[in-house]
C-alpha cells in the first residue's frame, strides 16, 4: 500500500439535520397535521407549536388538546381520562453515555 500522499484539513463542516419530537406518532390526532409541523393557528413549528404527552401515551399539539379539553376531559383517541404526563419519555441517549 502506497504511503498516504494526501492530507486533509477540514476548515468548516456545515451539517444539516431536521428535528422531530421524540414521539411515537407522526401526526397530531386532532388536527392531523404533522406533530413537528404547525398546529392550526400557531405561528410556526417547534417552540410555537409545543407537543404534550398524556399518561395514555398519546400526544397532541398543546394548542389542539387545550381546545379539546375546554369541552371534554377524555383523550380524543382512547377515551380514557386525560392527564398530562409530567414530561416526555426519556430520550434514548443521554449525556451520561457520552464517550
Amino acid at each position: 500500500m502506497a504511503p498516504p500522499g494526501l492530507k486533509v484539513t477540514v476548515k468548516r463542516w456545515s451539517a444539516v439535520a431536521s428535528w422531530t419530537w421524540t414521539a411515537d406518532d407522526d401526526v397530531c390526532g386532532i388536527c392531523h397535521m404533522a406533530l413537528d409541523g404547525c398546529a392550526p393557528g400557531a405561528a410556526g413549528p417547534g417552540d410555537d407549536s409545543p407537543v404534550v404527552w398524556g399518561k395514555c401515551a398519546h400526544n397532541f399539539h398543546l394548542l389542539c388538546i387545550s381546545t379539546w379539553l375546554q369541552s371534554k376531559t377524555s383523550c380524543p383517541i382512547c377515551r380514557r381520562n386525560w392527564e398530562f404526563a409530567p414530561s416526555a419519555p426519556p430520550p434514548s441517549a443521554t449525556l451520561a453515555e457520552d464517550g
Binding site: 468548516r12 463542516w13 397535521m33 404533522a34 409541523g37
Partner: peptide, 14 residues
C-alpha cells in the same frame, strides 16, 4: 471537529 463544526437544524414540515 470542534470549532469548525456547525449544524443547521430544520423544521422538516416547512
Amino acid at each position: 471537529l470542534d470549532g469548525a463544526f456547525n449544524v443547521t437544524v430544520l423544521s422538516r414540515s416547512c
